[in-house]
Amino acid sequence: MSDLHAYLSTSWRDEALKRLQTELTPDKMNNVTTSMSNIYKNCPGGAEMFLFVECKEGKVTRVETGVGEPPQGEFRIIGNYETFAKISRAELGAQKALMTGKLKLKGNLAKALKLAAVSDRLNKVLAKIPTQY
């Protein structure tokens, strides 16, 4: 189990950036420029954490994790830690989580929908990281 990364830890973050840059070409990312923060409420230990991902012209340029206020992004997705964990473990679809109100989106929905497929691709890469939740 030593190669498992603790979810949202610095090692998980570094692994995420490496995998996203390797596996998602600008083509696969539709050459988008955008940024998104996931806000994790009710994390183990009670803290509020974030995952911030930034893409420039389809290249994932930045992945940040941490506690407290995330960097400014184009979109925010807010939900419980356990909801995000279920999505990462492929136990719950991101779309379903949004459509049932388990996740809340902030930002321009019309733009967000254009990015739905890109977001799915990104989630699928993150889901493959050996993770300790």
Binding site: T100, K102, L103, K104, L105, N108, A110
Partner: peptide, 27 residues
């Protein structure tokens, strides 16, 4: 949300000022 892109295409308001609502948490 089903009509936001068309309205955005036809109105004089820029894309940042044409938004959508839909059946999603927060939206």
């Amino acid at each position: 949300v089903v009509d936001a892109l068309r309205v955005g295409d036809e109105t004089w308001l820029d894309g940042d000022h044409v938004r959508a609502y839909g059946p999603m948490g927060g939206m």
